[in-house]
Simulated assay, not measured.
Amino acid sequence: MTSPRIAVVSAGLGEPSSTKLLADRLRDATLAALTAHGQHAEVVDVTLRPLAQDIASHMLTHNPSEALDAAIGEVIDAEAIIAVTPTFNQSYSGLFKSFFDVIEEGQLASIPTALGATGGTARHSMVMDTAMRPMFAYLKAQVVPTGVFAASEDWGTASGLDRRIAREGQELADLMVAMPRRREADPFDAESDSFVSFEQMLGHA
């Protein structure tokens, strides 16, 4: 049995990036909570900054590059998603939105998902409820109750950021355990019980 995979999507624009830092912290909290459940997960990092041109090109041509196609595949095939964006004008970044716009309708349905956002001040914290949750509700993802917004002043202070990160990681791990994503067997997979080889069919003739 293979370990479940968590796709960590971060849309930070800088290097280094507080958005990527928050995504990594949410990843670590989720893995720790899964360990407490006696489970392990693999992690796939999907950093959108290097894919910016590919995403823009795909929106114009509807022809994804190999790199973008691989990134989309990692997200839609994951057992859980952690998605983190920087905040601009109390909304997600254009890069973040554009990436999820090129994912086909229904491909994120029922996937346990944790959301995070970063911004200069706490004034942008409503982005979680006014922009991110509605988008992922439309995409039919299973979003955990807690969302973590990290303002610049939250880092390295007693702001409660660590507590919120731990709570969201716990919620995502609990949801992964309670609602594991189940996949239908591929009828063309030779290892599937339902697969009948050409040689077997000849033998039954």
Rank of each mutant, 00 (worst) to 15 (best):
A166T: 14
P187R: 06
P134R: 09
A205Q: 13
F198C: 00
M176Y: 00
T2R: 15
R182S: 04
V196G: 04
L139V: 05
M126C: 07
A80M: 06
A52H: 10
R181Q: 01
H124V: 00
R164H: 13
S93G: 12
L68N: 03
R167V: 12
M135E: 05
D129E: 15
V144Y: 01
I55G: 04
P180A: 06
I111P: 00
A190G: 02
S194P: 00
L95R: 00
F149I: 12
E171Q: 15
I6E: 05
I111A: 00
L51C: 11
S10T: 04
P50K: 12
L22R: 05
S192Q: 04
L22N: 09
S159H: 11
M128G: 09
Q53R: 11
P50S: 13
G119T: 04
L139N: 03
E171G: 05
V196H: 10
F136H: 07
V8G: 02
M135R: 06
K140I: 02
G116W: 07
M1S: 13
A7C: 07
I72P: 02
F100V: 01
M128N: 08
E153W: 13
L31K: 11
A56R: 12
S125R: 14
V143E: 02
D162H: 11
A131P: 03
E79Q: 15
I103N: 08
L175K: 05
E104P: 00
R25F: 04
I103H: 05
D162R: 11
G120K: 12
F198T: 10
F88E: 07
D77A: 13
R163A: 15
D28N: 14
A185V: 06
R164C: 06
V102A: 09
V144R: 04
A137P: 00
F99G: 05
G38A: 01
D101Y: 04
V196M: 12
G203E: 11
E153L: 14
T146R: 13
T130P: 03
A52L: 12
